[in-house]
Amino acid sequence: QDPLTTTLAPASPQEQKQMLGEQLFPLIPAVHPTLTGKITGMLTDTDNSEPLCVLETPVSLASKADEAVTALQEKEAAQKAK
């Protein structure tokens, strides 16, 4: 009986992503004050199970946000190296 899952069920895939992003966005600054939009984008752009898991477990949120930031930093470093 997860309200969010119930809300998501009848929505289109794009609407589901939108809802998940709207839910995630205000949570991100608690673990990473910067890059909120990018981190939300990365988490939203995965299979829906991932953002759902993050929303349900705060520990997972911090972990996934860290992964996202690390990936971003690696990408920036790679771009600078070019």
Binding site: Q14, K17, Q18, G21, E22, L24, F25, P26, G37, K38, T40, G41, M42, T44, D45, A68, L72, K75
Partner: peptide, 26 residues
């Protein structure tokens, strides 16, 4: 191509329709 100005990951903005990877110019 505007691939240099928009890059992965797509940025999420509340209230703005999410297009995911469609935001990115391949």
């Amino acid at each position: 191509s505007n691939g240099s100005s928009i890059s992965w990951p797509p940025e999420f903005h509340p209230g703005v329709p999410w297009k995911g990877l469609q935001n990115i110019d391949p």
